[in-house]
């Protein structure tokens, strides 16, 4: 299999050419302890839409997501070549400042990980470390973001209680609100609903669909139906390579590549 076999439909090409994408990946290679995890990735992720990364487990889709905000840096024995441009700025450049890059991207992890502090402080954490000290402003931010994720009515009377007392679905929405509070441009989701019950999953999915008018969203998922429900575009990754990238309908209903076909039909998982 070669990276050059990755197929991009004509429509996608047009769409990508229309505006400068938030995220462009050029010749990205990631090696972890001598093993090549990602091979020659070239992608432009469309703005203001949801792009899902799908593929069998261990194919490198989570690593791909983590290279976008440089969380992959902390992995043992990792080597990265190539570049990831966010708003035209290479985040792997020598002088790139990593906290600044990460601020631009909210991360929603597999399981909700509320910080060990109150609900209020969870949301205010990001703005505070970036220098916001004004109590009134912080209050406004907290309320706005909790409303954004539909949590305000549920928690407005217990903002000072510990975030770990919320239900797991509420916690995940809190984590989303926490990410939004640092005013990112991009939201990254790493199988963000895999620990949730169906109703909470639906709430998160609906939220993401609503949020895409303001944000560029990249999700990793292994649930094809979820990719189909929420995403506008799909990236299919197999053995560290991007095999197919296109509109959701095209990739799922009319895949061009043999492996994609097999995966979509459920022959490989």
């Amino acid at each position: 299999m070669h990276a050059s076999t990755s197929i991009q439909t004509a429509e996608t090409q047009d769409l990508i050419n229309l505006s400068t994408p938030h995220i462009q990946i050029k010749d990205l290679n990631v090696t972890i302890e001598g093993k090549r995890i990602l091979k020659d990735i070239n992608l432009s992720i469309p703005n203001n839409s949801i792009t899902s990364i799908i593929g069998p487990s261990g194919c490198g889709k989570t690593t791909l997501l983590k290279t976008l905000n440089r969380l992959v840096d902390d992995t043992k024995g990792v080597e990265i070549t190539g570049s990831v441009l966010v708003n035209g700025e290479d985040i792997y450049a020598k002088d790139a400042e990593v906290t600044h890059i990460r601020k631009k991207m909210g991360l929603l992890s597999q399981k909700p990980f509320p910080l060990p502090m109150s609900i209020f402080d969870n949301i205010a954490y990001g703005p505070r470390i970036h220098g916001e000290r004004n109590k009134e402003v912080l209050k406004q931010i907290v309320e706005r973001q909790l409303r954004n994720v539909g949590l305000w009515e549920e928690v407005k009377d217990r903002l000072e209680s510990s975030a770990s007392r919320l239900s797991i679905g509420q916690q995940q929405r809190l984590c989303l609100a926490r990410g939004l509070a640092v005013q990112p441009e991009i939201i990254l989701g790493d199988e963000s609903t895999s620990a949730l019950d169906p109703i909470s999953t639906q709430t998160i999915e609906n939220l993401l669909v609503e949020l895409k008018k303001d944000y560029t969203i990249v999700l990793v998922t292994h649930i094809l139906r979820q990719a189909r429900r929420v995403s506008d575009h799909i990236i299919f990754v197999y053995a560290g390579e991007v095999v197919e990238f296109g509109r959701t309908e095209d990739v799922l209903l009319n895949p061009q590549n043999e492996i994609t076909k097999q995966y979509v039909k459920g022959f490989i998982s």
Binding site: E97, T99, H100, I129, H130, G131
Partner: peptide, 8 residues
């Protein structure tokens, strides 16, 4: 300057 202070 905030960023610089934090990195310091």
């Amino acid at each position: 300057s905030n960023v610089k202070k934090r990195l310091f």
